Computed example of a mutant assay.
Amino acid sequence: MTIDSHQHFWVYDEERDAWITPDMQVIRRNFLPADLKPVLDANHVSGCVAVQAGQSDSETEFLLQCAEANDFIKGVVGWIDLRSEGLYERLERYSQFEKLKGFRHVVQAEPAGFLLQSEFMRGVGQLVAFDFTYDILIYQHQLAEAAQFAARLPNVRFVLDHLAKPDIKNGDITQWAGGIRELAELPNVYCKLSGMVTEAHWNEWEKADFRPYLDVAVEAFGTDRLMFGSDWPVCLVAAEYEGAKGILTDYLSMFSDAEMKQVMGGNAVEFYNLDMY
């Protein structure tokens, strides 16, 4: 069983989705469940987790509607204002949606110190009461801050998205590797092996480019805290779904069958508490 722990849907809006720059023309259009289902089927993927791409309440509602109408969407990571005074009541309302598994904020776009703000930390801490998770989306220079953040909230289940976006294009690994190892020391933090192709030379990468980064991730987190994520459709700027998935399956071919199953699906099911029936 393979589970894609990280993908997105959107109805393209040029103003809202300004992060999709002109050189990403291939994804400047709508991407909906009907577009993904045949791709998952062709790649023998049993289900997926839809992750927020916009920061609004309507984004979370949109993803929940997608999940309600499509059984292959096993979980949703939405957005909520984690600094809101009425957060607890809103989380209580959201807890009725079985497929809503957690939340994410685009911290990579925030200034230094954002994760450690008392209001933000207090909000993330409230996720525990409803068994919600938190996805950490940062750049590699924010890893030390993320480690402090996760250490102060030991009861929250965290997952690092996209390996904190290492500079694969330039082969820079030393500083990133140190940050990854520090974060991985915290047992409440998992990591998604996702978003790698877009950090490499688009359409010019080779599978060998990713091996040093995967080696560090496995050494730091072990195969029981890593999970496959395609980052579809963002990955399409640099690779088709099959190519993005193949980087990881080829790498994992030297591991045991049990370890491969963990990374390719089992860990995502456990972390997000996905209902596979």
Rank of each mutant, 00 (worst) to 15 (best):
I3S: 07
D4K: 10
D4W: 07
H8N: 10
V11N: 13
E14P: 01
E15W: 08
E15V: 15
A18K: 15
A18V: 13
P22F: 09
D23N: 11
V26A: 14
V26S: 13
R29C: 07
N30Y: 07
N30S: 13
F31R: 09
F31E: 07
P33Q: 01
D35K: 11
L36H: 07
L40V: 02
D41I: 13
N43R: 05
C48D: 14
V49N: 06
V49R: 12
V49Q: 08
A50C: 03
A50K: 01
A50Q: 09
A53E: 11
G54A: 15
S56K: 13
S56N: 11
S56C: 07
D57M: 14
S58N: 15
E59Y: 11
L63F: 02
L64P: 04
L64Y: 08
C66S: 14
A69N: 14
N70M: 11
F72W: 12
V76Q: 00
V77F: 03
W79L: 04
I80K: 11
I80V: 05
L87G: 09
L87F: 03
Y88Q: 14
E89F: 13
R90N: 11
R90S: 14
E92N: 14
S95I: 03
Q96Y: 15
K99H: 02
K99Y: 02
K99P: 12
L100D: 04
R104E: 09
V106N: 15
V106L: 14
V107E: 08
P111L: 14
Q117T: 10
Q117P: 05
E119M: 07
F120T: 00
F120P: 00
F120E: 05
M121F: 02
M121V: 12
V124R: 12
G125L: 07
L127K: 09
L127E: 08
D131C: 04
D135I: 10
I136R: 04
H141W: 10
A144Y: 09
E145N: 01
E145M: 01
A150F: 02
L153W: 04
V156C: 03
F158I: 11
V159Q: 12
L160S: 10
A164E: 06
D167G: 06
I168E: 02
D172A: 15
D172T: 15
D172F: 13
T174F: 15
W176K: 07
G179W: 03
L183A: 01
L183P: 01
A184P: 04
A184N: 09
L186T: 11
N188L: 00
V189T: 11
V189E: 10
Y190N: 06
K192P: 04
K192H: 00
K192T: 01
G195T: 06
M196W: 05
M196A: 07
A200F: 03
W205P: 00
W205L: 06
E206G: 08
K207F: 15
A208I: 12
P212Y: 09
P212K: 10
V216L: 12
V216N: 00
E219W: 07
G222F: 02
G222P: 00
G229Q: 10
W232K: 08
V237H: 04
V237A: 09
Y241E: 03
A244Y: 08
G246Q: 04
L248E: 11
T249H: 05
Y251T: 03
Y251C: 01
D257C: 05
E259G: 01
E259T: 02
Q262E: 04
V263I: 15
G266P: 05
N267Q: 04
N267T: 04
N267F: 04
E270G: 10
F271M: 07
